[in-house]
Design a protein around this nucleic acid. Structure first.
Length: 603
RNA sequence: GCGUCCGUAGCUCAGUUGGAUAGAGCAUCUGCCUUCUAAGCAGGUGGUCGCGCGUUCGAAUCGCGCCGGACGCACCA
């Protein structure tokens, strides 16, 4: 926020845009500056609107007028007098309390589509000011199976990194895996005493999970076993060679599992710097916090406490218990001398800033950890105030996945659903449907279609809801293949491709001609692709893109029903419609790709 | 007890600086396959946006208070 000062957008950037709404926007901003020389025009935006009012609308003048106690309609008249948008718009209208309504000239619309058809762009601009963004997501734990809970972080994080990259930002994706912690004491003990080598070869993660469970049960019942486990942990922490070797092997085995899943999901990371990577710095972080007086000792532990700079209600280091405000510190060292995740997270921020100098670090993590992140960010701001001003730290939180019963999603027997099993089931269910719908296709092709549709369905169902709300996991919904689902979008794409297979001739760079309502509606919607991508990148909400693509597919099918392409009356119409189909297919494919979802040529 | 998030159609959910008559899918009802994939399209039914007060030209959106729900509240992440 604070780093936005002086970050004005030169209008020349927008003037270079191929997109009419951006041209209108920068012209409008110039006109507003002309009418109100001191106005902050960064909030003067032009957005698509209800077609009955026009194609685009700005309501910015009303809030500007309000802040200055001006008559909004009069301000609109003054701004309009200075506004020059006749190249792309029909006469601009002032409506209601002070809306500006813009209607695109057909020529401007056609020209934008033509340039896209010629390959000059795909309805979005690269960012004027590319940012460097670290995206921290997925973060599975070593020696545990990835489960259904990981799809949210993995899917949302991947969609965000893809979208940011598409817009020309520099992204550093980092998988902060859980490869350190007290659980390794138990795992090491289990490995040394009850490891089944054959099982380890067959299914390493299951065997590691078994080790943990058995020893954990032992420890609960028998304090001596717990001591044994602790001493293994101490040896590991002290750098014991044998324990370190076993620990590394457990990580390698887990990484194999992660790679398999990520391979299926098509997710890539630039770095996988787990928690253990930061071990060498943890002591120094705590020492520095103590030296600077930011942390202090309490009950044997070391923590960061309230500095009293804000009212208790806003103080993240206080919590109210029975009517009294009591400390809720961010602990950075336990009373046994061990460090905890706040320490690691502080060292991680420090490392990332020093290594990559990002403008932003985005954490795609469960909403339940929001108070942890608030404390973490506040602690970092106190620890390194100057560095903190240069980076935006964002917690992208998300809700839980629930079962049909409204309780957290589990298998019938009450276990957590393993991610691999979930993906298998998605593909199996999709295969049944493909076999039913397209029995004529060869088996291998049906399997490939089922793979793309099954995975797409799961990912899309996860990305579609507002990320902050919990959502109900339903196979029927995501694979019913009706409504707002990945298959619906993939189907729209496949239908377009089918047209092209049947079109023996066709020039994708044909002259664009728009006449029918369905053609105009579709064309105008294509123009909003960039706006949508920017909204996703700005608000870190992939669901905006889902809804955009669903509408695009809907507008396309409407066009498809009403405007024959191959059987159009004349050659020019046929070619123009083919070009429109081609652009729609490209946007669908590109948009789905930004969500991490593949398409098939036929389904 | 305190904090965070949430409460929108029968069900599941959208709702992009507060903006014009609140949207979609499912379900339900009515049409549409001798024309490019009907996994589709067109249309109907269905909502005092939990309740109340307030701010505003304008509130699902902002503020306050209730009611209901989920989650979280030092040495696990």
């Amino acid at each position: 926020m604070a780093n936005k000062i002086g970050n004005f957008q030169p209008s020349t950037c927008n003037l270079a845009s191929v997109l009419p709404h951006k041209q209108i926007e920068s012209a409008l901003q110039a006109a507003v500056r002309g009418a109100l020389s001191d106005a902050d025009v960064s909030a003067v935006l032009v957005r698509p609107c209800d077609p009955k009012f026009g194609d685009y609308q700005s309501n910015a003048l009303m809030s500007l007028a309000k802040a200055r106690k001006l008559n909004p309609r009069q301000l609109a008249i003054d701004v309009l007098a200075k506004l020059e948008v006749s190249a792309v718009c029909e006469k601009v209208e002032i409506a209601g309390a002070g809306f500006l309504n813009f209607r695109l000239k057909d020529a401007a619309l056609t020209e934008t589509l033509q340039s896209a058809a010629n390959g000059a762009h795909l309805f979005f601009d690269k960012a004027d000011r590319p940012k460097t963004v670290v995206v921290d997501f997925s973060s599975p734990n070593v020696a545990k199976p990835m489960h259904v809970g990981h799809i949210r972080s993995t899917g949302i994080g991947d969609a965000l990194q893809r979208t940011l990259r598409l817009l020309g930002h520099q992204v550093i994706s980092d998988n902060h895996i859980g490869d350190w912690g007290t659980q390794f004491g138990k795992l090491l003990l289990g490995w040394k005493q009850i490891l089944n080598r054959a099982e380890l070869e067959r299914d390493a993660i299951a065997e590691l999970e078994r080790l943990y469970k058995v020893i954990n049960t032992d420890c609960d019942a028998n304090p001596a076993r717990l001591e044994e486990a602790k001493s293994e942990l101490v040896k590991l922490q002290a750098g014991d060679a044998g324990n370190t070797a076993i620990w590394k092997e457990m990580i390698a085995l887990s990484q194999k599992q992660f790679d398999t899943i990520y391979g299926r999901l098509g997710v890539q990371f630039d770095f996988t710097l787990g928690e253990s990577f930061y071990n060498p710095w943890l002591g120094a972080v705590v020492a520095d916090l103590l030296t600077r007086g930011i942390a202090r000792e309490s009950e044997g532990a070391v923590g960061v406490f309230s500095d009293g700079s804000v009212p208790p209600k806003e103080d993240v280091f206080l919590v109210n218990r029975d009517g009294e405000w009591v400390p809720d510190p961010a602990l950075v060292r336990k009373s046994d001398g061990g460090f905890n995740y706040t320490t690691t997270d502080l060292a991680t921020i420090d490392y990332r800033l020093k290594t990559w100098s990002p403008d932003e670090i985005v954490y795609v993590v469960d909403d339940r950890q929001s108070s942890h992140f608030k404390k973490l960010f506040a602690t970092f701001a106190r620890w390194q105030p100057d560095a903190a001003k240069k980076v935006k730290l964002v917690h992208v939180g998300f809700g839980k996945i629930m079962g049909d019963d409204g309780k957290p999603f589990k298998t019938r027997s009450g276990d957590t659903v393993k991610l691999g099993d979930l993906l298998d089931e998605a593909e199996e269910r999709a295969l049944k449907i493909v076999a039913e719908k397209s029995p004529e296709l060869p088996e291998t092709q049906r399997q490939e279609i089922a793979r793309v549709i099954g995975l797409g369905a799961v990912k899309y169902a996860d990305l579609l809801p507002n990320r902050q709300s919990d959502y109900i996991f339903s196979w029927n919904k995501m694979l019913a293949l009706q409504g707002n689902t990945a298959p619906y979008l993939q189907y729209a794409y496949a239908r377009i491709k089918s047209i092209f297979r049947k079109a023996e001739t066709g020039n994708l760079k044909a002259e664009i001609k728009l006449a029918a309502n369905e053609e105009l509606t579709l064309a105008k919607h294509l123009l909003n692709f960039g706006l949508t991508l920017e909204a996703v990148a700005e608000e870190l909400r992939p669901n905006y893109l889902c809804n955009y693509l669903f509408e695009l597919a809907g507008k396309f099918t409407s066009f498809y029903e009403n405007c024959p392409v191959l059987k159009a009356g004349d050659e020019a119409t046929r070619n123009a419609r083919l070009a429109l189909c081609g652009l729609t297919a490209q946007v669908l494919k590109q948009g789905l790709e930004a969500l991490g979802i593949e398409v098939v040529e036929q389904m």
